[in-house]
């Protein structure tokens, strides 16, 4: 999203309160969605729940193409369409809902840095495993990604997506990495997060922020998604405080709502 568009959106958004009819769009949960999209979508859902903003989740097979940025998820609020966690945080802030207002500048910078770490490490690792690991791509990613389409379009779209992600991996220098190196990166990232979290309930003590939502979205999805190997989940399980962190957010924001 361009800066001008972003400014415009926030201005427009500020005028109206959060409507009851807000919806979040993501691909089909059972047959289609992939680990990385599921993680991003869960992060946004966690964030909105932390803000206390109700949102209805809608599953659409063409969610990726409906999204203005081509990324999952996006929310439809009033007549606004906003995609991805970053812009959605901006958008809710303009409506007067923010989780990071209590932080000082240093903390805010730190929060942004950790969010970048998660996006650059965990999200990229998820994409790598989905599309660059041949076994996962053939057994899980391509069949799931192409499930809404009929042959031969299904094959065309799945390979097109795989090619696109591999090209991106090559561009950021991940193309040469082995699976083992990617797992090591994930371990390092988790250790960094684990150290930062320490014994606090949330990253910035008592109050959850968008960083908590993002970390929860990724870790929880990795822990609960079945892949060709359990290696990725094992790496996270070695940090016990992250596990209890996931459990805590799940209980606070997801379980009481559903019961």
């Amino acid at each position: 999203m361009s800066l001008a568009a972003e400014a415009f959106v926030s201005q427009m958004a500020a005028a109206e309160p959060w409507p009851e009819s807000a919806t979040l769009y993501q691909p089909l949960k059972e047959d289609q969605i992939l680990l990385s999209d599921c993680a991003s979508s869960l992060a946004v859902q966690a964030y909105l729940r932390m803000c206390g903003l109700p949102v209805q989740v809608v599953y659409k097979s063409n969610a990726e193409y409906m999204s203005p940025s081509g990324k999952i998820p996006f929310i439809h609020v009033g007549n606004q369409v906003v995609s991805e966690l970053g812009p959605i945080v901006q958008f809710t802030k303009a409506k007067g809902n923010s989780l990071s207002d209590g932080l000082d500048d240093v903390q805010r910078a730190e929060m942004k840095a950790y969010m970048e770490l998660v996006n650059n490490m965990l999200l990229t690792a998820e994409l790598y495993i989905q599309w660059c690991d041949d076994a996962t791509a053939a057994e899980i990613s391509r069949p799931r990604y192409s499930s809404p389409y009929s042959w031969p379009l299904s094959n065309v779209l799945a390979y097109q997506k795989q090619w696109e992600v591999r090209r991106k991996m090559n561009a950021i220098g991940w193309g040469e990495k082995t699976l083992e190196q990617v797992y090591d990166d994930v371990t390092q990232c988790c250790q960094a997060l684990s150290q930062r979290l320490g014994t606090q309930p949330y990253f910035f003590n008592k109050q959850p922020t968008e960083l908590d939502a993002l970390v929860f979205g990724h870790l929880f999805t990795i822990l609960t998604t079945r892949l060709t190997s359990t290696e990725l989940a094992e790496r996270i399980k070695s940090c016990s405080n992250l596990l209890s962190f996931c459990r805590r957010i799940e209980q606070t924001y997801f379980e009481d709502k559903s019961s």
Binding site: K60, E64, Y65, M66, V81, S150
Partner: peptide, 24 residues
């Protein structure tokens, strides 16, 4: 035909946005 539909602008109505995507 492999058809790919998309919005012409960000301001496109949601009804058109819902039609976006690929079809054969």
């Amino acid at each position: 035909v492999w058809r790919e539909l998309g919005c012409l602008a960000r301001s496109a109505s949601f009804a058109v946005r819902e039609e976006s995507g690929h079809s054969l």
